Computed example of a mutant assay.
Amino acid sequence: MLAGRLHVRNRRFALETVPVPAPGRRQVRIKVAAAGVCLSDVHLIDGTLTPRLLPGDVVTLGHEIAGTIDALGEDVDDWKPGQRVLLQAGERDRRGTVYTRGVDYDGGWAEYALASEQTLVAIPDDLPFEQACIIPDAVSTPWAAVTATARTAPGEAVGVWGVGGLGAHAVQLLRLVGAAPVIAVDPLPAARQRALTLGADAALDPGDPGFRDALLGLTGGGLEVAFDFAGVPAVRDQALTLLARKGRLVLAGIANRPVTIGSDAPFNYLQQSVLGHYGSDPEHVEQLVALARQRRLDLAPSISGVLPLAEAEQAVRRLQTKQGDPIRLILRP
């Protein structure tokens, strides 16, 4: 079968022919129908990210996957061939260590992928594979940030810095939980327009001289929650100055840089906080599938393009260069 393989030592990515994998005990083999291309895939290729738990030095990329069950391993009783499923982006071992699919073990940029049975989530027949595959990570990461880490309450004023693959979904999800106003912050005009289309109450340019006054005017004095989905130090510096009393800054983007609080006196007096966020838990994916099933969540606008698996390198370049300002590009084997 064809697979998109990363050779970690020299960061060489290539489409290669590899054997079709056989499912082991309590595993299933998935015929991949759609696989998302995430910025973390780009960072694995360019060397910004490195697998920590990969046993070898070659891995099939792709952690956003949907398809149909093709074959069952031994002792799999609750699933049947032909069922439509998406795969959780990773799994925990008995010690609680998280292994990420497409990073620490082979992922879904391939014609077939293996998955432990506990990482399968059934999807409804009317949810397209292209939309289902991005729920783990692209949608579940901001959903967990909004609901679990920030514990965003209805009526809270929120700011979303970075309206890309994660932030665009955060805008939709914040509106879904009743946050108000939802203010998108992005230097790119196309991203700000996209945020308004997705339901933001306002979209501001962080470099505009009137930015601070505009945001404070919209919120009546500051943000209850600020989300950094950009992973940029300047975003944290700016957001921290715009928090209201008991305001929370949630770091969902990764900058690999120190987080600096200008002065502890106002930070302490106003009882503000900085919260780290990473990924999501299985229940967040299940919640989002339920929301999609009930048509509370429309992910069609998130699909910026569908390319054949053989053009994975082109998809990576498009995302890396932001060609067409994509939310998510999808590979189809």
Score class of each variant (00 low, 15 high):
Thr17Tyr: 07
Ala310Cys: 08
Ala66Trp: 00
Leu331Pro: 02
Arg212Phe: 08
Val163Met: 02
Glu74Phe: 13
Gln271Ile: 03
Gln118Ala: 15
Pro142Met: 11
Val250Lys: 06
Val185Pro: 05
Pro333Ile: 06
Leu120Trp: 07
Pro23Tyr: 10
Arg245Lys: 11
Thr260Lys: 12
Glu283Cys: 12
Gly82His: 03
Arg151Gly: 10
Ala113Gly: 00
His63Tyr: 06
Arg317Gly: 09
Pro128Glu: 02
Thr147Val: 14
Lys246Asn: 14
Pro189Ser: 14
Ala300Pro: 00
Ile30Thr: 04
Arg293Ala: 14
Gly210Trp: 00
Trp109Gln: 10
Val177Gln: 08
Tyr278Lys: 14
Arg25Glu: 14
Leu6Pro: 06
Ala203Leu: 07
Trp79Phe: 13
Arg293Asp: 10
Gly36Phe: 03
Gly73Val: 08
Val158Ile: 11
Ala226Thr: 05
Ala312His: 09
Thr119Leu: 12
Ser140Cys: 00
Leu174Met: 05
Ala202Phe: 10
Leu319Ser: 02
Gly107His: 01
Ala71Pro: 01
Ile69Tyr: 05
Leu204Gln: 02
Arg296Lys: 13
Asn256Arg: 14
Ala184Thr: 10
Asp57Asn: 08
Gly62Pro: 00
Asp186Pro: 07
Gly207Phe: 12
Thr119Trp: 11
Thr241Leu: 10
Gln88Arg: 06
Asp186Phe: 10
Leu53Gln: 10
Ala150Cys: 03
Pro187Ala: 15
Pro282His: 08
Ser304Trp: 01
Tyr105Gln: 04
His284Asp: 15
Pro189Asp: 13
Gly73Thr: 01
Glu111Asn: 04
Thr147Tyr: 09
Asp201Met: 07
Ala180Ile: 01
Asp93Lys: 10
Lys246Arg: 15
Ala122Phe: 04
Cys133Phe: 02
Asp208Pro: 02
Leu54Asn: 05
Asn268Cys: 14
Val185Tyr: 09
Arg293His: 08
Leu307Thr: 05
Thr241Val: 02
Gln287Trp: 07
Arg52Gly: 15
Leu291Lys: 04
Val235Pro: 01
Thr141Asn: 01
Val98Trp: 15
Pro51Gly: 08
Thr321Val: 10
Thr119Asp: 13
Pro181Cys: 11
Asp325Tyr: 08
Val85Lys: 01
Gln88Phe: 08
Asn268Pro: 00
Gly164Phe: 06
Gln193Phe: 05
Thr17His: 13
Tyr99Phe: 15
Thr68Asn: 10
Thr17Ile: 12
Ile65Pro: 01
Ala35Met: 04
Glu91Thr: 13
Pro136Asp: 08
Thr152Tyr: 09
Thr68Asp: 12
Asp281Ser: 14
Val58His: 11
Ser280Pro: 01
Gln88Gly: 11
Gly324Cys: 05
Glu156Asn: 07
Pro21Gly: 06
Asp205Lys: 04
Asp57Gly: 10
Thr147Asp: 03
Ala138Pro: 00
Gly159Glu: 11
Arg192Phe: 12
Leu176Lys: 09
Ala244Thr: 07
Gln238Ser: 14
Leu270Asn: 09
Asp237Trp: 03
Leu319Val: 12
Glu224His: 15
Gln238Asn: 08
Arg26Trp: 10
Leu331Met: 03
Leu198Gln: 02
Arg9Gln: 11
Ser40Asn: 03
Cys133Trp: 00
Val285Gly: 02
Gly96Leu: 13
Ala244Val: 06
Thr219Asp: 09
His277Lys: 11
Glu224Phe: 09
Tyr105Ala: 04
Gln323Gly: 12
Ile303Pro: 04
Lys246Thr: 12
Leu188Arg: 14
Val289His: 00
